[in-house]
Measured scan of single mutants.
Amino acid sequence: IINNLKLIREKKKISQSELAALLEVSRQTINGIEKNKYNPSLQLALKIAYYLNTPLEDIFQW
């Protein structure tokens, strides 16, 4: 999986903590996703895309 979450999140000036709060997950979860240590569920990936107002395929590429 190619993961552009960190790049997109930083472009939008959103911290890991802010995104985690919006998604109701821990900051460690966001960190793990960004470091490719954790693959989000489809539901979480869709929520990330929604809150970042970015197409899912721009954030994650399988």
Rank of each mutant, 00 (worst) to 15 (best):
N3C: 08
W62Y: 11
T54D: 02
I59T: 02
R9L: 04
A49M: 03
N3H: 04
L42F: 11
A21R: 12
A45L: 06
E18A: 10
I33P: 00
R9A: 02
Q61A: 11
N36W: 07
L44N: 04
Y51S: 08
P55N: 07
T29F: 14
I33M: 05
P40E: 02
L56W: 05
A20E: 01
K12W: 05
K47N: 07
L7Y: 13
L22T: 07
N53L: 04
Y50L: 10
Y51W: 10
I59R: 01
W62F: 15
S41I: 04
N53A: 11
Y38L: 14
L46A: 07
Y38W: 09
L46G: 06
S26N: 13
N53R: 09
Q43Y: 12
T54Y: 05
L42I: 12
N31I: 15
I2V: 12
Q61F: 12
I1K: 10
S15A: 08
I1S: 11
A20H: 05
A45I: 05
R9E: 01
N36R: 10
N31G: 09
D58N: 08
I14C: 05
S26C: 06
L44Y: 03
S17D: 12
I30K: 01
N31F: 07
L23S: 07
P55Y: 03
L44R: 02
I59Y: 01
P55E: 06
A20W: 02
A21G: 11
K37D: 12
A20K: 01
I14V: 11
L42N: 07
A20N: 00
L52G: 00
K47Y: 03
Y38C: 13
E10K: 09
E34H: 00
I30W: 03
A49T: 04
F60N: 01
I1W: 15
N31S: 12
T29W: 09
L52A: 00
S15N: 05
L44M: 09
K37A: 10
N53T: 08
I30N: 00
Q43M: 11
K47C: 08
L44S: 02
L46N: 14
I30R: 01
S15H: 06
I33R: 01
N53W: 03
W62S: 11
F60A: 01
I48C: 05
A20Y: 03
K37N: 11
K11H: 12
T54R: 04
N3R: 03
A21Q: 12
S26A: 06
K13A: 06
F60S: 00
N36P: 03
E24K: 14
L7W: 10
P55Q: 06
A20T: 03
L56T: 04
S15C: 04
Q61W: 11
T54L: 05
E10L: 11
L5T: 02
Q16D: 04
L52C: 03
A49Q: 04
R27T: 15
L19Q: 00
I2E: 10
I14Q: 04
S17M: 12
N53H: 11
